[in-house]
């Protein structure tokens, strides 16, 4: 039960969505864009979020696309569910990552956009997008705009008020690159990550973003330089661990020292499995 009232709108076009957002704001109300809704409902139930209107974007055709555009880019609507992305198998690394977020039933409800815009710190679907240099298409009142993912996603998805994520565009070559995905949890398979990495190998170089290691997901050039440098796998793992050492999360899922241990193992694991790819 959500202990407050709000209005519900389900626009059929992007324009309707941004218009109703503006209109509600002008009436002094707090609207939110609503996609899968799982996080909003669970937060609203315990009073961690409050709003006056939910604008459900699942009926907007552009938010539901799953196709290649004329430039051979994969286009994924922000309101696709994680399970739709996994089952389509068009972006195997993203599918794999999405298939390890929450559980299967939840994956039938959680959407790509919802996970990217999540307030929960993990936002694991951004990892494949960061490595694949995806672009985010955002709708605002004055139309559509496209941003490189690493610009608009800095620790979290930074959208201007009133705008919403419509789709993610990814170069087919990147989407089909050889990849790795490792998710480590405390003990239970379905859990928040102690550490997740989901990267690709491009031009002989590994790209390795992380979620769960720090309080936000990230990709670091410094880490990737060490990763792709010479030196034994162990040395590289140690060096990388040292560079992030101070920012490693420490919580009930795992102490920072333990996460550091898991990080080193994971890096060695990635280097080993990807060395001949």
């Amino acid at each position: 039960m959500i202990p407050f009232d709000f209005e519900y709108y389900r626009p059929d076009t992007m324009q309707e969505a941004t218009d109703i957002f503006r209109q509600l704001e002008s009436e002094g109300k707090t609207p939110v864009y609503y996609s899968g809704g799982t996080e909003l409902i669970s937060m609203a139930r315990v009073g961690n979020v409050i709003f006056d209107a939910a604008i459900d974007i699942k009926n907007i055709p552009e938010c539901r696309v799953l196709e290649y555009d004329q430039d051979n880019n994969l286009v994924l609507g922000s309101a696709l569910t994680l399970s739709e992305i996994t089952e389509s198998n068009q972006f195997p690394l993203l599918g794999k990552t999405a298939g390890r977020i929450a559980d299967h039933t939840m994956q039938c409800k959680i959407t790509l956009g919802g996970n990217l815009a999540s307030t929960i710190i993990y936002r694991e679907t951004v990892l494949p997008l960061l490595t694949a240099e995806s672009r985010a298409v955002v709708a605002s009142h004055d139309g559509l705009r496209e941003y490189p993912i690493n610009e608009i996603f800095n620790q979290r998805l930074n959208l201007e008020k009133g705008s919403f994520l419509v789709k993610i565009v990814t170069n087919r070559g990147f989407a089909e690159s050889p990849y790795f995905h490792i998710k480590k949890t405390k003990n239970e398979k379905i859990d928040y990550p102690l550490l997740t990495t989901a990267g690709i190998k491009v031009g002989g170089m590994l790209r390795i973003p992380f979620s769960g290691l720090c309080s936000y997901p990230f990709r670091s050039m410094q880490i990737e330089n060490i990763l792709n440098d010479t030196g034994s796998f162990e040395e590289r793992a140690d060096k990388i661990a040292d560079t992030v050492s101070e920012n490693i999360l420490n919580d009930t899922s795992g102490s920072s020292e333990y996460r550091k241990f898991v990080l080193k193992n994971t890096i060695i694991n990635v280097l080993e499995t990807m060395k001949d790819v």
């Binding site: 661990a241 102490s255 020292e257 333990y258 550091k260 241990f261 080193k264």
Partner: peptide
């Protein structure tokens, strides 16, 4: 932790 003393 028990095996290593909690030091990575």
């Amino acid at each position: 932790r028990i095996k290593t003393g909690g030091c990575s």
